[in-house]
Each structure stands twice: as C-alpha cells, then as structure tokens.
Design a protein around this nucleic acid. Structure first.
Lengths: 81, 81
DNA sequence: TCACATTTGTACGTATGTATC
DNA sequence: AGATACATACGTACAAATGTG
C-alpha cells in the first residue's frame, strides 16, 4: 500500500476528505481492486497521523459513496460491482 | 490559573480588551511562559461570564499582537520567541 | 480448549472553526 | 455582545467479534 499524502491542515479540504480523496483515487485507478481489503483504521491512523474518529469519518464517506463496504471485526473492502 | 478581573461593562475598555489586558499581563510578567497553554475558550467563558464570540475576539487580538498562537482543536499557546 | 492480537463499534469529554439569528 | 447549532478534530476507554497460535 502506498503512503498517503501529507495532510494539509490549512487546505480547503478537511483532513478526513483528503484521506478519502487519496483512497478514492486508488480505487478508481484500479490500484485497489474490487474485493481487495483497505488498510485498517490503525494503519491509516499511523500512516496519516490522524485520530481514529477522523479515519472513521473518511471510511463512512467512502461507504456512503458506495465505494467500500465495511465488515465488523474484519475490515473494509472495495465494493464488488 | 488566576481568576480574571471583574468585567466592567461601563468602563473605557470593552470586555474583550479587558480580558486581553489581563492575559497580556500574565504573559509579560512571566506568569504564563512561552509554550504554555492558555485557558480554553470554555474556561474563559466560565470564569469571565462572557460569550464565546467575545472570548474569541480577545484571542484574535492577542494573536494579532503576536503574543499567542492558536492551534485548531488544541488550544492557544504563548508564542515562543 | 485456550490465550492473544487484531479490528471495528460505540461512547464520552474537550477543543477550535464557522455560520446564523 | 450574546445564544445556538453544527462541523471538524484529538484522546481515551471499553465492548464484541474475528483470526491465529
């Protein structure tokens, strides 16, 4: 898994959307394929330096977009379509 | 943290400047040292009885003076110089 | 069967940013 | 100056299910 971009706390997009944009790009480019697992909340926290609630907000956004599906105690996966 | 002075709503200085003057004094006297955190907006609201917008006006004044720096979601700190 | 680490779910408290009335 | 609301973010803690050894 690539490293996420540096978080810009002063940019036009809030941190949780910056992470979402990064993951969205990986999915749409095919780097992350349908059925494939995404980094765990912990991994994203460590790689971005953001808090868990912020990462969870990112994942919720991607879920709402239908791009990923989250399985409790398992992880989040790229939606198969 | 000391208690702020009683707010004089009829005095020559508006309330937000009265609070600013108090904090400025603490900083210049060394009671609040560089890098040290200032009371949160909530604490200042409670201890002064003033509204949040007023407290924020106080902090903006101190920021503009270069006496303090505010970190989003963190708090305001005495500028290190 | 058991113990342990991992992972998501949930909740609470605190803090600043922004907007509306 | 004030009141209220919502957005965004950090930290902590605990619960519950899963996977691994």
């Amino acid at each position: 898994m690539d490293e996420p971009p540096e978080i810009d706390y002063r940019g036009p997009l809030p941190p949780y959307q910056q992470v979402a944009a990064w993951l969205r790009g990986l999915i749409e480019s095919g780097e992350l394929r349908p059925g494939q697992v995404l980094p765990s909340e912990k991994e994203l926290m460590d790689s971005t330096g953001l808090a868990r609630v912020t990462i969870r907000k990112t994942m919720k956004m991607l879920r709402d977009e239908g791009l990923v599906e989250t399985v409790p105690q398992r992880g989040s996966y790229v939606t198969r379509r």
